[in-house]
Design a protein around this nucleic acid. Structure first.
Length: 107
DNA sequence: CCCCTGACGGGCG
DNA sequence: TCGCCCGCCAGGG
């Protein structure tokens, strides 16, 4: 059955626990499209309109807030800080501590 | 219909 | 270690 890739991305993003973050690449890999990390970012870009998806919990593999420009107040960094995740210079501090990898934490 | 621009990331020199 | 290139592919001009 044909599943819409963007839809699948949204499903996974919704599973990211409060106070944790994931990356575009990890999600793409989990969906079996490891070279389409970019499409995950693209999906987030068109998704943040709907407030149901915690798009602020998705960053790049270095913990950089590459998508901050898509958020209005509160900023992406503020949203993360509200969950206990500190950001400095657009980079998440102690990234690996909060990183949630669907490939290993999800079945 | 062609061209360009990305919320990415691995590979290679 | 650092930077450039390339695959990916949806939307807009």
């Amino acid at each position: 059955m044909e599943r819409d890739f963007f839809q699948d991305v949204y499903e996974v993003v919704k599973l990211i626990p409060y106070g944790r973050v994931s990356s575009y690449g990890a999600i793409a890999t989990y969906l079996g499209a490891k070279s389409s990390a970019r499409m995950v970012g693209y999906a987030m870009n068109s998704a943040d309109k709907n407030s149901n998806i915690p798009a602020h919990r998705v960053v790049n593999r270095n913990g950089q807030l590459s998508g901050k420009h898509a958020f209005s107040e509160p900023s992406m960094a503020e949203r993360l800080a509200a969950e206990g995740i500190l950001v400095e210079n657009d980079v998440i501090l102690n990234f690996n501590t909060y990183f949630w990898n669907p490939n290993t934490e999800l079945l």
